[in-house]
Design a protein around this nucleic acid. Structure first.
Lengths: 141, 141
DNA sequence: TTAAGATATGCAATTGTATTGCATTAATTA
DNA sequence: TAATTAATGCAATACAATTGCATATCTTAA
């Protein structure tokens, strides 16, 4: 019944309930920060084939289950969408923070501010990523 | 004497004046939008080795001559910094626009708005990329 | 103007990231 | 539980990025 129970999420999105898909949701849900594709692969590489992992992540992004954040290095990071995101229209456009030391990507509780875009440009989504040193890495130095 | 004359830029930044470096600056300066690494490689691949191109781009970014914008796909795009950027502290933090049709990255004349970051996080730079359809592609459809 | 030193370049090899096609396996449903 | 439908794993491939090293080029100081 939990809204973020993997089985529930899969059912809600008409995706087959496979152990690989459940594992991906568990792994991403377990982390407070977003998790990168390479890290996911390190954690799940023995259970799930690389290709399957890519396909699962793409399927989740299409359904709006995950959102993808491209970090400073161009690496894909994934986090579970907080609320009603739909295909190709993610509602949770909050600010992300990418740490230059631990490389983690955090979802900050800060909304992306409104801006005025020149005429003729049609905005579909916005990526706002602050880059710097996170609280944990700041404290350790 | 022009501030964006390639030879001047190289001298100002204590970089050796080589024909490869001049060509990269010419090519990036010629485009109104930022240009992607793959496109640069297509244009310059016969004159400049891939590896050299990567090294030149990195050197320029370190010196603050270029700024790098990671687009929606994680691809690096480069544009000439408008004004006094220094190593690792790029001043021109304006909004970028990444077109989903032509894939171009535009530097918009809009500054990145200020936001409040949680305590402990130290921001060094900000990436603000709006994703959607650009004015030219909108007009064509 | 040129020789010496410092640095950039190109090549070959390697690593990492992402995608495609296809045979096999697993999940759903009636 | 059998039939259908979709997901997975494997092999192959494409593309992006980096490293080490020999060679070539630029700069400078005589």
């Amino acid at each position: 019944m939990l809204a973020n129970d993997p089985t529930e999420i899969l059912k809600r999105n008409q995706l087959k309930n496979t152990k690989q898909r459940v594992r991906v949701l568990e792994e991403i849900g377990a982390d407070d920060a977003a998790i990168s594709q390479p890290d996911l692969e390190k954690k799940l590489g023995k259970e799930i084939d690389r290709v399957t992992l890519y396909r699962i992540l793409n399927a989740y992004e299409d359904k709006g289950i995950l959102h993808r954040i491209i970090d400073h290095n161009g690496t894909a990071n994934y986090a579970i969408c907080s609320s009603n995101c739909s295909s190709h229209h993610h509602q949770d456009e909050h600010v992300h923070f990418n740490c230059s030391i631990c490389a983690k990507v955090y979802c900050l509780p800060v909304n992306v501010p409104q801006i005025t875009i020149p005429n003729g440009f049609k905005t579909e989504s916005i990526s706002f990523v602050a880059y710097g040193v996170c609280d944990k890495c700041s404290a350790e130095n």
